[in-house]
Design a protein around this nucleic acid. Structure first.
Lengths: 229, 229
DNA sequence: CCCTGAATTAATCAAACGTTTAATAAATAA
DNA sequence: TTATTTATTAAACGTTTGATTAATTCAGGG
């Protein structure tokens, strides 16, 4: 009776994480406003009062959902950056892959709710409302700053403005492949397979590195023009 | 009394467009589920029954909001592509700029609700729910296909899969700068000014073109490796 | 065993939701 | 003018929302 076993496994994890899982799914699918506490409770197989018992209100539940995953991503990315700079200066390709891989892999992570969180993070990363901005600021600005500094170290000819732009551009590309909407497959008549993680990482890294180098060239050209005036 | 004049101008435009404007703003700010018909009616200074009178229900209101702006973008981009291919084959830079500029400029469009729509399109472009996918499919797939074909014409060494990926990557970068979240300014300590349209277009086009060329190189490398086996 | 604190439950609250209705006002056609 | 469509209104519909309450179950230590 394997179904009963899996069902029981589902029950084994405590209500706290069951709620987080269901909430992650709901927020990703319907947005913050469209997700309902009742539906989340039903999905988590938990009394709806439990959600307020553990997370007080909807806002803090959202924060908790973001905090769980962002912690995971930040940890992995920080480790990757640590080991990258303990020896000789890495290439831009190595650095960009270290930055983007944890993000992309989480989105491609089957079984656990990685894909759901991916859609969630894409949404609030591009939103200007206060809740989203606070989430980005609290949970992703620190690692962003560290990544930008690393980019500037690897490519000294890049100004800070270009490095910031390069980082944000690269991240936005990575995020777009996380939220697998099926659009790539539709537009390519099935040729593009966004579930192939390695191919995705390779493509995104190549695209982003070339883009960042182009920003550096652009800066030098501008400087040249200014000097000629 | 200039305020009264503007207020009256606001009244002059019929309820239909007043509703669309308010809905665009609300959907962008709070998402589909979070935006309320009542609040939209209040903002549009219109009885809430009028919304159902003109747009039947919330879903069709959303569709109407998307249709209005997408029509504008598609028209501009189609014109740009038309004039681009009437003579000699254009450079990749010219093509990518023709594709991205209308999108970016709409997002930077002050006064009218361009910025609000920008945030809206970013959200549903990265969402997998049925409503968002239908919006993308109905209003943006046709122009996407035409753009992808154009890319392949300008860069014949690109396979269809790479062209699709290149297009989607480029668009995602352009969209990320449309939804001006203020994050670039925050991370760069004010150095990045995402309200400078021309600088934004230049940066995004340079980044995207270099990225697309890198995808082509990657493909050739793969083919080379496969041949050596 | 009882006690204590945490976990869980069903029931309930006021508020807000999308939508509908019936009546009225304004504009247009005859 | 009258007749007819179009636009607008206030009120209400039933449902769902996030949140709270008070009562209950449960586990572990004394």
């Amino acid at each position: 009776m394997p179904q009963a076993q899996t069902a029981q496994q589902g029950k084994q994890k405590d209500s706290r994480t069951a709620i987080l899982d269901a909430a992650e799914q709901a927020f990703a699918e319907y947005g913050f406003g469209g997700a309902s506490i009742r539906a989340i409770a039903r999905e988590a197989d938990v009394n709806q009062a439990m959600i307020h018992y553990y997370y007080q209100n909807k806002d803090q539940l959202f924060t908790a959902v973001v905090a769980r995953r962002s912690g995971e991503i930040n940890e992995r990315r920080n480790r990757a950056l640590d080991s990258l700079f303990d020896g000789a200066t890495p290439t831009l390709e190595m650095l960009v892959e270290a930055i983007l891989r944890p993000t992309i892999e989480l989105g491609h992570d089957k079984g656990r709710g990685g894909a759901a969180y991916a859609r969630l993070i894409v949404t609030f990363n591009n939103s200007a409302d206060e809740r989203s901005q606070n989430a980005a600021k609290d949970h992703y600005d620190p690692i962003a700053r560290r990544s930008i500094d690393a980019i500037m170290k690897v490519m000294p000819e890049l100004g800070k403005a270009e490095a910031v732009r390069g980082y944000l551009f690269a991240i936005s590309v990575a995020l777009s492949v996380m939220a697998k909407t099926g659009r790539a497959a539709r537009l390519s008549d099935g040729l593009c397979d966004d579930s192939d993680t390695e191919e995705t990482v390779t493509s995104v890294v190549a695209f982003a590195c070339a883009g960042i180098r182009a920003l550096a060239n652009n800066k030098q050209k501008e400087a040249g023009q200014a000097g000629e005036k």
